[in-house]
Design a protein around this nucleic acid. Structure first.
Lengths: 220, 220
DNA sequence: ACAATTTTTTAGATTTGTCTAAAATTATAT
DNA sequence: ATATAATTTTAGACAAATCTAAAAAATTGT
């Protein structure tokens, strides 16, 4: 698989991740920052290799084979992100660009050993699940604090607003990525939320609650 | 710089590492496993970017700019090799192929942080020196035990013969990469050498001595 | 329903890195 | 010294991935 093919497969996966229907040529072109005609060419090539299901003018979807390729790339991407944050002290918002390159390194042994080195993580620094070797992963529930009911509990895995000001605020309030929070109370009046942290409970404004993602530990 | 350009620069560096003269087109073609005509094309391109000094039919040499590019790639390659061996438990003879891919990842921050994570190593797992950011490195002396006089001391950094049998032998005799040895005595009769190790002194045959490299800690 | 718009595909060109075959240059051997 | 051999370069072609411009198909609005 060429680098470019891998990028297309990944783009198609992400575009069909939630709606599951077939993906439009234009949508892929936008995602890949290229022209629709280039997309058509590449789709033909991927169809030739039966990585995608394709019928002219009818959009495209990943075949099972293609889906597994996508998941293996995503697995690599997310493991590298964990490495960059946990081992090299990158901040979680800097890692994406570098992981985009690292995900294309071809070595099964490397990924196995990296996985072990990292302690077989289940989610990446943004709270997104890491597929296993066979492409199996538990769809994690990742929600804004403002969307959760009282009693919910989870690890803080990301922010909506990555402005320096907001990150500074989090730092000042001793809120860090990875911290576990529990929602104790939601104030009807202003939407502010009381959450418990390791160092006690604090109250956060609605604005904060709509910008912090929790990765819910969903027992099932 | 494209991946291919980087590979050519690295090949030219290695080919002129010891003789320092200009490198022949055929030599590059052999190293790169490509045809001489392809090499000529690429050399023209590199000359255009003033990464090499080139005169038709006269061979090619790296410009200062090209030399710095080569050293930055070598720096990345060797840091990744240290990572693979020290952190991911690859054996030192498996790392080259993977490092060949990793060396092309473009991110200064990544290499800085990797360097720090590894404790700013000075040599790679094969005993070859790691250039610093500015391309400066101390030319390390790496010699076979059989080439060294009594009294020499250094870290074991590599083998000539990487057959499974030889590696097994080393393992059985508790000789591992990184161990420090001192040469105590050389037997005229059969060329066998007595060396001191952490766990006492042992005698190794000439055959072993001609297959083990020491990285000499050369005070100057 | 069908004209207008949007989306998608085709056709033909471009760039990068490669190739083969042939020509130009340099090296070698007697 | 010069014919022969080896090396290097040129010329022209090709595959991959992209582009522009134009044609084909699907969608939308009234």
């Amino acid at each position: 698989m060429t680098l470019s093919e891998e990028d297309y497969i990944k783009a198609i996966y992400h575009l069909s991740e939630f709606n599951s229907k077939s993906v439009a040529t234009n949508a892929i072109a936008e995602q890949m920052k290229t022209k629709p005609s280039s997309v058509t060419d590449m789709i033909k090539k991927l169809a030739e290799k039966s990585l995608v299901n394709y019928k002219k003018y009818q959009g495209v979807s990943l075949s099972e084979k293609g889906r597994l390729v996508a998941l293996s790339i995503i697995r690599k991407h997310r493991l590298w992100e964990v490495f960059l944050v946990d081992k090299l002290n990158f901040s979680w918002d800097e890692v994406h660009v570098v992981a985009e390159q690292l995900e294309h390194i071809k070595s099964d042994a490397l990924i196995d050993k990296l996985d072990a080195h990292l302690g077989f993580p289940k989610v990446d620094p943004h709270g997104d699940p890491i597929p296993n070797k066979d492409g199996v992963f538990t769809k994690s529930v990742k929600k804004l604090i403002s969307e959760l009911p009282v009693g919910s509990q989870g690890a803080c895995v990301g922010v909506n607003d990555s402005s320096a000001a907001f990150l500074k605020f989090l730092d000042k309030n001793k809120i860090a990525l990875g911290d576990t929070f529990k929602i104790l109370e939601i104030e009807e009046f202003d939407g502010s939320v009381t959450i418990s942290t390791r160092s006690g409970s604090i109250r956060i404004s609605k604005q904060i609650a709509t910008n912090l993602f929790l990765e819910i530990v969903d027992e099932e």
